[in-house]
Nucleic acid binder design. Structure first.
Lengths: 246, 246
DNA sequence: CGCACCATTGACGTGGTTCAACCTTGGTGG
DNA sequence: CCACCAAGGTTGAACCACGTCAATGGTGCG
């Protein structure tokens, strides 16, 4: 299988699709050129491991395209996805050179990478970039804590509906009906939701039976009425914030 | 009931018990004096609400003594504790003036508070303090994600044992046997673990029956063999890191 | 065309919840 | 000083949502 997306490697930061949402969002002019010099793109195919838990991680970076999962596991092999990385999300931790989670490409994925040392220097030199990273980290923290409520207190049906709402809000490609390609297999969905594959499958079927969603092949979902799906998620559509989660 | 701990209000930062672990850890000399000018202490009794979810939060600060819980709830009232704040932990979010969680004092609690605006200026002026806040936030993020694995994949017994291990490591007051006063009621433990009170109670009794812990009144726990308790938590004591979690 | 992989469906078992009763403990007032 | 009460905690019995185990179905790729 040949390397994909190599053409992206020649792109200037100023042309980057995630330019205004990633760590680099607040950079301009000379800073952007410095980043263009530092960066390199690399791609993985769906299913490939990007980093193993506990392995050295000599780079940090941003997701340009695709979707990757962060997974923690118990010693006896039970796994929990603790985060999804979507375009513009940041991977890696300044000040720590070992990965705290296993990172796997859920779909074909391209990352924009910086060597850790160069990135740390950039952060130290550029306070507004450090501040951007702080804000992004705090958004991640809020998202992680929101997900703790899902894991700890929601029923299987609410969990599945919650995930579908999140995905539809992030990656829907049409309106009326909303349509999206799920970036996750049933197994990954189960691992993210603290459920089994079978339970996820049954709840998907049940939501289709209730007329709340439609299914197209393995990965496609449709939704005519996001409000109804949000109600299944245990969220009052009137109360809910309309912005996608951070 | 009269205000407690008012004497702490006169303390200089250089004498503060959390001086070397809180956001201010990297501050010295003039910076520390600036903080001393800015800060004020305030105390709450066990059970009192510090902030309501969604309410304006005009301050940020650090826990000096005691323990507070962060809680998120569903619309129909199911609650999940998404974080514990122990001495030196930071409360509030720079750049956001509304609380994302309900904050409740689990025990009598004293906070060191800064007005948000003054603190934001301090952060902007003092890069190493911004960096300290970033590192603390990333530690919180790792802790939240670790807890996601607990909520999503561990059994009731493992959950209870995990919580007891964490508490013993943070607040044990003696060795052989380790002894601690639980900062949480059974209800708070259940809300933290994604369980019911009854299940927590049964698992505590079962762990005592297995000889892994001892119980002293409502809040006291003893542990002769932390390794055995860690084994109940589903953690190999040999593999585990020996430092308390961040 | 056929194989592998992913997903669905069914039957059954069980860990944790629910509902209800009871016990303990610490605080308060007679 | 102790009786009483409220709040927190424990225990028991029955139920059920979700997991487990197993078979079947669909889909895309070689």
């Amino acid at each position: 299988m040949s390397r994909i997306d190599l053409d992206l490697a020649t792109q200037a930061c100023s042309e980057c699709p995630i330019r205004h949402r990633a760590v680099c969002a607040s950079c301009e002019g000379a800073e952007l050129e410095r980043l263009t010099e530092m960066k390199s793109y690399r791609s993985w195919r769906a299913g490939e491991t990007i980093v193993l838990e506990g392995a050295p991680l000599p780079f940090v970076g941003s997701v340009v395209t695709g979707c990757a999962t962060l997974t923690r596991s118990t010693e006896d092999g039970r796994a929990q996805i603790v985060g999804l990385l979507m375009p513009s999300d940041f991977l890696g931790r300044p000040g720590r050179d070992v990965a705290a989670y296993e990172v796997v490409a859920a779909t074909d994925t391209t990352l924009c990478l910086f060597r850790r040392s160069a990135f740390e220097r950039m952060i130290a030199d550029t306070p507004h970039m450090a501040r951007r990273l702080l804000d992004m980290s705090l958004d991640e923290l809020d998202a992680a804590r929101d997900w703790m409520l899902v894991l700890g207190r929601r029923t299987a049906r609410e969990k599945v509906a919650t995930l579908l709402v999140n995905i539809l809000r992030r990656v829907a490609t049409s309106h009326r009906p909303l349509r999206a390609e799920l970036p996750l297999t049933r197994e990954a969905m189960a691992t993210y939701l603290g459920l089994t594959i079978e339970t996820v499958s049954r709840q998907m079927t049940a939501l289709r039976g209730a007329g709340v969603i439609g299914l197209e092949g393995r990965r496609g979902i449709l939704c005519d009425d996001l409000g109804a799906l949000m109600a299944e998620a245990g969220v009052d559509p009137a109360t809910a914030t309309l912005t996608p989660d951070a």
